[in-house]
């Protein structure tokens, strides 16, 4: 039985990972500019909040992808975790 690979998931994963990776140097860059005047702490809070958001989303998509692959590879895929 031929089933599709969850490509839309991969597209999303790749794009979100890219956006996550791109935001890291941005935050750091903005951070260093103002390092003279103020603490970096709020930037870290913002960065962690955004990173956690995307990590949670990616985790969700990975888990869906894994379950789909499990189904394709002949698992029963009966129960969710």
């Amino acid at each position: 039985m031929h089933m599709f690979r969850p490509r839309p998931g991969l597209v999303l994963v790749a794009a979100l990972a890219a956006s996550l990776a791109s935001s890291a140097p941005l935050v750091a860059q903005v951070g260093t500019e103002v390092l003279a005047q103020q603490s970096l702490r709020p930037y870290w809070y913002v960065f962690i909040a955004y990173a956690l958001a995307w990590l949670l989303l990616l985790g969700w998509m990975f888990s869906i992808g894994r379950r789909m692959r499990g189904l394709e590879d002949g698992g029963t895929g009966k129960r969710d975790a």
Binding site: V11, L12, A15, S19, S22, S23, V30
Partner: peptide, 21 residues
Amino acid sequence: ATVLGVLGVAGVLVLHWLVFF
């Protein structure tokens, strides 16, 4: 899923740019 995902990711990229710059 793909169409919505591409639009959503585009939106997220724009959002990142707006938020950080």
